[in-house]
Computed example of a mutant assay.
Amino acid sequence: MAKLTKKQKAQAEAVEGKDNLTVEEAISIIKSNATAKFDETIEIAMNLGVDPRHADQMVRGTVSLPAGTGKTVRVGVFARGAKAEEAQAAGADVVGAEDLMEQVQAGNINFDRCIATPDMMPIVGRLGKILGPRNLMPNPKVGTVTMDVKEAVEAAKGGQVQFRAEKAGVVHAGVGKASFSEADLAKNIRAFVDAVSKAKPAGAKGTYMKQVAVSSTMGRGVTVDIVSATGNG
């Protein structure tokens, strides 16, 4: 087994035996351990009592984090004419139709979020094998297939986060940066947990939220008390 560095030992000792902390306690520990030379992302992982292989147990949605994400999000929009102009005016990074499809097919994916007007979906549909695995496929359920491209672009740029349950029923996302204040991180974490709570699918049985954990990019995770994370603590 590889030996731990001094820094890794210190991080391990900081979280040892600490479980089910309040959101504020967890953030305090995570921030103090986020000592990398870059501004680490604060990440949340939620274990849910769902099996997303069943359609009635799929969890997905979006949430606008009150303090933003701290990340610059590049937005690509499939649209024509007036809707393409609207997307550009709203701050989209790349806008197009067949020309944008050809760029993506050539491996030039210069966006982190993809939005499309409904009439563009026959074109976007051809890119399913490229966009799907990257979680970039526009979907009306999360507001990325829409005629209101202005609102969708502004939401993506303004701190909106998408989430979806993976195979094991785990939802994870970045909820800010280590440089954020503890108060802003707490607001973002509670907003995210609240959105996942509201996205509880009809087919979920038993305990829906099993565990909530928070970590930084390079740091160890700590579990958070679910009542505290929902803002009811």
Rank of each mutant, 00 (worst) to 15 (best):
A79S: 08
V142M: 09
G91P: 08
V149W: 06
F111Q: 02
K9Q: 13
A204I: 09
Q211W: 00
F192G: 00
F163H: 03
N188F: 10
V222L: 09
T41W: 12
D19V: 10
D184S: 07
A45F: 15
I226D: 03
V77D: 03
F38R: 08
R113G: 00
S197L: 05
M121A: 13
F180L: 04
P133S: 06
G233D: 05
G107I: 05
V193L: 00
A229G: 05
K129L: 11
T69P: 09
S228G: 06
V145L: 06
T22P: 06
Q57P: 05
R190P: 01
V175L: 12
T5S: 15
F111E: 01
A82G: 05
K200M: 08
R164H: 13
G169P: 06
A195Q: 04
N108D: 04
I123N: 09
K83I: 00
I130T: 15
A34E: 14
M218N: 12
E24Q: 10
N47T: 13
L136V: 04
G49E: 08
K7G: 03
F38S: 02
L131K: 11
L65P: 02
K167P: 00
V142R: 12
A92L: 12
G221F: 09
I226S: 02
E86N: 12
G81N: 15
D184M: 08
S181N: 06
R113T: 13
G206S: 09
A213Y: 05
S32T: 10
V23N: 02
E40W: 14
I109A: 01
T22I: 04
L48F: 07
V170T: 13
V196M: 06
D51F: 07
S28A: 11
H54E: 07
Q8Y: 06
G128I: 09
I130N: 09
V59H: 03
V104I: 15
K31A: 04
Q162Y: 08
E43A: 09
L4C: 02
N20V: 00
A168N: 14
K167E: 10
A34M: 13
Q11H: 04
L21D: 04
A79Q: 12
L185K: 01
S32V: 01
I44P: 00
I29V: 14
L48H: 07
G68C: 13
H54F: 15
A229D: 05
A89H: 11
V75R: 03
G76W: 04
V214P: 02
M46V: 14
K18P: 06
V161S: 02
N20G: 14
M46N: 03
S32E: 14
A155K: 15
A199Y: 05
P138T: 08
T22A: 03
T117G: 05
I44Y: 01
N108P: 00
V224S: 05
S64T: 15
A213W: 06
D225R: 11
L21C: 11
E151P: 00
G96R: 08
H54G: 01
N47G: 04
V23T: 04
I109W: 07
G70C: 12
V94K: 06
T217L: 14
K210S: 03
D184H: 07
G49M: 10
T230L: 14
I27E: 01
G233P: 00
G174M: 10
A195M: 04
R134I: 01
R190A: 01
F78C: 11
S28K: 15
I42R: 03
V94T: 12
K3V: 11
